[in-house]
Design a protein around this nucleic acid. Structure first.
Lengths: 226, 226
DNA sequence: AGAGTGAAAATACAGTGTATCGATATGAGA
DNA sequence: TCTCATATCGATACACTGTATTTTCACTCT
């Protein structure tokens, strides 16, 4: 009974779980954006047939949900914040950093309720940091308001980054970054206030812009908590 | 030479322009969401071949840009606001109303820089309302911050509306609206702060929630302008 | 009347999400 | 150890997508 007589054992299909699937999907999205994530491509990366994935998810949107929740794991932090302000500040900045690592997150942020374990854990941690500082409703409103701010801000920032990237390697200057179109439009004189803002405004980098707005909002929250 | 001898005059193709195209696209999106907008379906609605549209747009994303700008026309207003606060308040609420009329707007808001004529006009009007109340940079920051807030808030509101709609006709109660999943998760006791918020919080309708957060942010802006 | 030109239509291609169904490997029971 | 039931995987299929390319054709100008 030589080796050649015995048949090779059948190639068992690659074992799969949601974690591996989501990791593959995230990798694809990081490389080529959300549009690069297709069921076929994710499956191919795992040496599996496309339909295999539908044992773990029942729709592509669910895959996106899993991806978002995976990123919430990055946003989650062990160390407990010193106070509520630090908690909200940290949450905002960690979310922003996550979005800068995973641009596609900007497309998904706020698009669906984050009900995954990590998403809920983040919400829990945030609410816990504000617990007792005001009645539940006020706390709720505070978290919602801050979250709304930074999702909106992150979305715009990533949108601008993409626009810059797409219009070639145009640097941070607004005027030429947006290509000739804005410049020409402004030259018409129909948008004086906008022109003034563009030409007289000093360019601030995205991070300070983000932080400035965030601090304003946090001040507003502070006024209601105390 | 009877009528039958003479050939029918050739059917001239339907005249087209961007306005008609965008109107058709908006109608489709209003009925079935953004995914219902396909080049073929838009064209079909105009009795034209799909490729016809590519004379007016060069990519589907551009069609979306046009759609967004069309909605900005709804957001634009003739009457000049009494003061800056009214201007920002009005902008936020008109944008929200537009998004409630066109849910798909939430998917697009903030996704790309709004460089269309109406988008620019809205920005212009907003900046004009704040002009002179502070240095250009502060004004810029104010508009950005408020815009970030309401885009984020609108996105979440529409996301919640959809989630409610999709989980059947479950009413406004959080707990059962989110289906058994959240209820079960909360029952585990791992999310005490969240549970407290859900069970002890009084349900506020979306509009007051929106307005409350907005007022906070506007207060924050006021503190920097004066 | 014929040639040239522009636009519209048809065709084509490579991809998409997902339903369905036949093959097959695995574990249970005899 | 053999057989059968069951669950799982892969292949196939379908309807549809955005867009490039090719073909057709009505009209204008010489």
């Amino acid at each position: 009974m030589t080796v050649w007589d015995r048949p090779e054992p059948p190639i068992r299909p690659v074992p799969l779980d949601r974690e591996r699937i989501v990791a593959a999907a995230v990798a694809l999205a990081d490389e080529g954006g959300l549009t690069a994530v297709s069921v076929r491509k994710v499956a191919a990366r795992l040496d599996a047939g496309p339909m295999r994935l539908y044992g773990f998810i029942s729709t592509k949107d669910e895959l996106f949900d899993l991806m978002v929740d995976a990123v919430y794991a990055e946003i989650l932090t062990e160390e407990r914040p010193g106070d509520w302000r630090e908690a909200l500040h940290g949450l905002a900045h960690r979310t922003r950093q996550a979005a800068l690592r995973h641009h596609w997150l900007a497309d998904l942020l706020g698009g669906r309720p984050a009900l995954g374990p990590n998403g809920l854990a983040v919400t829990e941690a945030t609410l816990a940091a504000l617990d007792g500082l005001a009645d539940v409703d006020t706390v709720m409103r505070a978290v919602e308001t801050v979250s709304a701010y930074f999702t909106g801000a992150i979305r715009r920032e990533v949108a601008d980054l993409r626009a810059e990237r797409d219009t070639g390697l145009s640097k941070t200057e607004w005027q030429r970054a947006r290509g000739p179109h804005v410049t020409r439009t402004l030259a018409t004189g129909r948008f004086p206030a906008l022109a003034k803002a563009v030409y007289e405004g000093t360019h601030v980098d995205a991070e300070t812009s983000f932080t400035t707005g965030l601090d304003w909002v946090l001040d507003a929250v502070a006024a209601r908590l105390n």
